[in-house]
Design a protein around this nucleic acid. Structure first.
Lengths: 250, 250
DNA sequence: CTTGACCCTCACGCTGCGTCATCCCCGATA
DNA sequence: TATCGGGGATGACGCAGCGTGAGGGTCAAG
């Protein structure tokens, strides 16, 4: 029969943790003295070792309780699910790291750039053509307003915005390759980010957002941006996702 | 001037989130009406875009506030630190996954095994090699005695013992990462647990315990167990702790 | 009997909102 | 003008897993 402190020292945890485990019913002391003192026996120590093992693996305490208390609950299943969850997190973090790398790269480049232009790095004649096309599509005023707004961003903001667009594009392409449905949650989530991205310089309504989607399909320049020469149908996929998004959320 | 709902829809976040950002001072409305209504202008929307961008990268809100509010605070630095933190988490998760894989393997093997073998889940040829190496190191008799003792445990005991070893290993690695001294109380406490763990099947004297430490350093199999491919020096650290322990307590 | 070392029970804090519950406000309609 | 529906606002609890006091009994030793 060991006291909380003795158990805590032996197991390398805190007394508070034992209190907590007792409170949530994960590990109750073998005996409780008349004075309220907790006493732990061999059995509890073994259970504690099990708990700490699973905890080390990152399983939530509730899962641990389920594994230990429900004999029908298969630890193999629990571990495999947990493993999958961990891999998912790793993938997520890797995506974040890639985006950060791109942001860092463009921030570093930006430091020796003078103006804050979204389209820095793109040939002037191309930019002019884009502008003419955009004006035809949405009107001169809208384009001018968007451009003015764009110029108001700081270098960091521009860099962040560029990086975000790269990330969105990559996500769209990945989902397209994976065969996701335009109306699926995953695709719609990316579409939402895309909508917010567009909103940096312009706040389109449902019709305008759908129009932008069609623009991606019809304009060869944009097609090339999204299909990368090897993803035919990707622009249509994105346009469809945008149409769904517009109908649902705008 | 947009209301909370309008901003929330446009940005794809919830009204509650805006309330929250206001409460913690991350994003305050441009104006607050006499009725207490929050109104957001262009400036606030721009700031919100920035916030959401960094949030996607996984930066905590406090960090975001620092980046946006302190002009002296370099976003490059913040991003690089965050990147490093993400990589750290990835490494941690990978370690967990390896441990889980080992556990799954031993659980699976255990199911069609009759005897309670410590090294369930490890390929027979590997076990044989370990055995030969151990016999060279400590002698045939000692190894045979240890093996016999090991077979006397129940399944639960074996599981507990395995769990304890995992826990000890994790503690050693953590302490090593934290830069603890081999002779420090914390490290010696874990070393004591390790000594007691070893004693399950074998009661080494001071010289033998030190020898086991050297074995951890020299044997690539054990090195890999302790340095996990990213903690070079960890085996030496443990060996040193064991030597100190042996001199002091054995 | 007094320490000093332990034990106990609250209970807030941290992260980032989700989710009610309760109540106020505003524009449009009957 | 009374009313109603769609917001808007302010608490406040909940979640995960304890850390960290606060305030107050208990116990063994001197």
């Amino acid at each position: 029969m060991r006291t909380v402190r003795q158990v805590a020292r032996a197991a390398g945890i805190s007394v508070r943790t034992l209190h907590h485990y007792d409170a949530i019913g994960l590990l109750k002391p073998g005996h409780v003295g008349a004075n309220g003192y907790r006493y732990y026996g061999r059995e509890e120590l073994l259970r504690l070792q099990q708990i700490l093992f699973y905890r080390e693996l990152g399983l939530p305490l509730a899962e641990i309780a389920a594994v230990l208390d429900d004999p029908a609950f298969d630890p193999l299943t629990a571990l495999r699910e947990h493993r999958a969850a961990l891999e998912g997190r790793i993938g997520h973090y890797r995506t974040l790291i890639r985006t950060i790398d791109r942001t860092i790269a463009s921030l570093e480049k930006d430091e020796d750039m003078e103006d804050n232009d979204y389209y820095a790095g793109i040939a002037p004649e191309t930019r002019d053509r884009w502008q003419r096309e955009a004006e035809e599509f949405w009107g001169k005023d809208a384009v001018a307003a968007a451009a003015a707004k764009a110029r108001s961003f700081s270098k960091e903001q521009v860099a962040a915005i560029q990086a975000e667009m790269e990330s969105i594009r990559a996500d769209f392409q990945r989902l397209f390759r994976e065969g996701a449905a335009p109306a699926s949650d995953a695709v719609q989530a990316v579409t939402d980010r895309h909508y917010r991205w567009v909103s940096h310089s312009w706040t389109p309504d449902a019709a305008a957002f759908k129009g932008l989607g069609r623009y991606y399909v019809e304009n060869p320049e944009f097609r090339g941006t999204y299909d990368d020469g090897e993803l035919p149908g990707c622009p249509e996929f994105i346009a469809e996702a945008m149409a769904v998004y517009a109908d649902r959320s705008l």
